[in-house]
Amino acid sequence: MSDTQANTAIDSLPELLAHALAMETEAAERYEELADQMETHRKAGVAAIFRRLEKEEKAHLVELNEMCSRYELPHYAPWDFKWATGESPEAIAIDQVSYKLSVRGAVELALVHERRACDFYAGIAQRASDDEVRILASQFAAEEREHIGWLESCLADCGPDDGAIDDPDPPLSQE
């Protein structure tokens, strides 16, 4: 099992939908949070990447919410989800960003997390015994691959850097 796949089997549609809803909600909210942070710190280019991803995730959420409304979903406490990671696999950890983040760094970071989301769904599709779960998880994985494709094309357009920019006016301790 890869470190991004579910840590135990998910084998019913309501379980899968509950996980998908939590993951897509967290991803949308986290991209929004990161876009806001970057706008506050006047990092328009980086903010635009996160804002675009927020919109993509929110579009997914509309469809997903509609699908979920047809089922009674189980309630999971945040610590009971079957993520192999701490937070859901698609959510970029807050401490992985910095005001020095470059556009390339943001794209690379998002790419890692979109791939984790894809692996998560692909792992469920591979191991589930229920046909409906397999089909839906495969569909979710394919949707994540669309984001990966877009981010890979962004990466190809980015200039080379190490993911961070130099700060010509760094914060100084007060004298």
């Binding site: 949070e33 990161l34 806001d36 942070q37 970057m38 506050t40 710190h41 807050i94 401490d95 992985q96 960003v97 910095s98 005001y99 983040l101």
Partner: peptide, 13 residues
């Protein structure tokens, strides 16, 4: 209200 903490700050978490 949008937080104005530095990106990466633990307080967001």
């Amino acid at each position: 209200l949008k937080p104005i903490w530095c990106p990466g700050c633990g307080d967001y978490t």
